[in-house]
Design a protein around this nucleic acid. Structure first.
Lengths: 338, 338
DNA sequence: TTGAAAGCGCTAACAT
DNA sequence: ATGTTAGCGCTTTCAA
């Protein structure tokens, strides 16, 4: 079943059928109607490869997700897939490890799959112009932005939260609840990524409140793995450090931390409060439920896809969207007895 | 940069270049070497669309995942993506709701994207030959098999666990621990799917042990959603039903159930034991950690992809692989005091 | 408004 | 072992 069959069936030329398929003007309503009916009846689906070949224009949009075990990304990817499909494109998903280079991966993918654009999930924040040369299609950073790099604002798009501010917000909330000895569990304080920004926010909020930063309360696990988060929290406790609250960089890290606290006989939140940033569904059902700053994952995904496709179709331009988290109060934070 | 440029650069014909690219024999080592070098140097990447068009053979493998919120599937999809890529194919992912028809989705995808084959995640167990006619490429059912349908064994592949047996195993474990009043929380006892099979296993194990099946202890939530699981568990408790243990159909359902028990002042496992089937990483860090039958998600994904590609490449044939779960003992099950 | 015809980049006979 | 050639299904000038 090809465009030829439809043409023959309708007694018109293939070009006319092509025009109908591509919504070109210059086709009489009668013919258009007829062709559309034939397409419908004969269940004709245009050959994507042929279209791509001749117009050298695919429908592929790449999604490069770094840090494979992040459940937060799962929901983002789900929405991304739906949105990309609904708008008539195809998602090409590539999941790479935290160690891998997302730019290289995207550049290779771009050439192989003729990508129209790329959405990055969980990349670094310090891209340089030079580094990005191999990538010739527009891209949007989803859940982060190029804080530490030298990219111009109009060279890329981003959808993110103010990581520094949000972490500060979490700490302020703890301080508001009377906590002053606040630990933080994160991957890496100097990774030019989310960890670094949130760590800055943590220190900033402490400073604001006149609380000195105590390195003994900053725990660096190297990644977002739960086993590491658990182990390092145990060490923090066993070190004899004095703290009444913990800010965890993610919900999963928080859950592991709560487990560690519990296993050492500390009650959450009575002996130690725990707050995180993410807001995954599951953490609303843990014991205790997690108090967390909820990122609007679905909305961020939708915006990313829409923006990229807008740019691809020439109807939009590069923008930088900042979203807000919302505090989802659970049972893991309590006020410090005066 | 096309095959022509390479040909010109090397002073050979395009067919020779094509042969090198496609690893055909009949090329002298010298020429092959030269062409490969040129490809390398000129950073040539063959145009996928042209290849697909002319050979009417794409590299696309469809993955249709039903039941979008299943975190268990996330890890399966991750491995699927990696495996499919590594073997030189492209994963086309389509996530559909539990209400949607995976066969229709796959058939549409097959035509649009010229799929070579399909991997189904979380489909129904009762396909009929007729129903599958629109799907003309080989497929494998991952994490389930066509127990209730009329497909011949050599018409499809599957990688699954013995759902009935595994559920029975879980119940036997509880019985072994001294429990006799055992509730089960599942989606639907007659969905021709995992729920139905595991429910049968539950009843079978009870019968074996001479324990009567009590409908008051079977909770049907309609789906795998955590909020429903939570609500229905509350109702179970509030109904005054008498039970000392719960089998949950999945880890997430178990976590929601534990939350409900806890919120009603029941301690897990002292007042009620909970066991589940899945074995996601996160449930090893909940309070209490979940006792669960771990499904080998990664291995199941790998096998599914390898089998399908084997069939596509003509080196394998349809098979039905059954995997075993392993008991991951957590803290959510305890023996009933004698 | 419509049709004829020239490719898009590649593969696979078929020749040589 | 290598080259010649005819398309794959579609879009897009260009001409009518």
């Amino acid at each position: 079943m090809t465009i030829k069959d439809i043409a023959a069936h309708c007694g018109v030329s293939t070009s006319t059928v092509s025009r109908v398929i591509n919504d070109h003007p210059d086709v009489s309503p009668v013919v258009r109607e007829m062709v559309n009916k034939a397409i419908e009846e004969l269940h004709f689906i245009p050959n994507n490869s042929a279209r791509t070949l001749v117009s050298s224009r695919s429908t592929a949009i790449g999604v490069v997700s770094r840090g494979v075990n992040n459940p937060f990304f799962s929901s983002v990817i789900r929405v991304l897939g739906r949105e990309i499909n609904d708008l008539g494109y195809t998602m090409v998903l590539q999941q790479i490890s935290t160690q891998a280079d997302e730019i290289r991966a995207a550049a290779a993918l771009e050439r192989e799959k003729k990508l129209l654009g790329v959405i990055f999930l969980g990349g670094r924040f310090n891209y340089t112009k030079e580094e990005l040369e191999p990538l010739t299609v527009p891209f949007v950073c989803c859940t982060y932005t190029n804080t530490f790099g030298d990219l111009a604002e109009d060279e890329y798009s981003s959808v993110s939260i103010r990581d520094e501010d949000e972490a500060a917000k979490a700490v302020r909330y703890l301080i508001h609840m009377g906590h002053r000895r606040i630990a933080m569990i994160l991957d890496d304080p100097a990774d030019f990524s989310i960890g670094q920004l949130r760590f800055q926010g943590y220190k900033k909020a402490l400073a604001e409140a006149g609380i000195g930063y105590d390195p003994a309360l900053a725990v660096f696990t190297g990644d977002y793995a739960m086993d590491a988060a658990y182990d390092y929290t145990l060490r923090l406790i066993d070190s004899g450090a004095d703290f009444t609250a913990i800010l965890a960089i993610s919900d999963t890290v928080a859950i592991a931390a709560i487990k560690a606290l519990t296993d050492r006989g500390l009650r959450v939140p009575e002996d130690c409060s725990v707050i995180a940033i993410d807001g995954m569904e599951l953490s609303a059902y843990t014991v205790p439920t997690l108090t967390t700053l909820r990122q609007p994952a679905e909305e961020m995904a939708r915006q990313s896809a829409d923006m990229l496709i807008g740019i691809i179709e020439g109807t939009g331009s590069h923008r930088h969207v900042l979203m807000e988290t919302t505090l989802r109060e659970g049972e893991s934070v309590t006020a410090v007895p005066a």
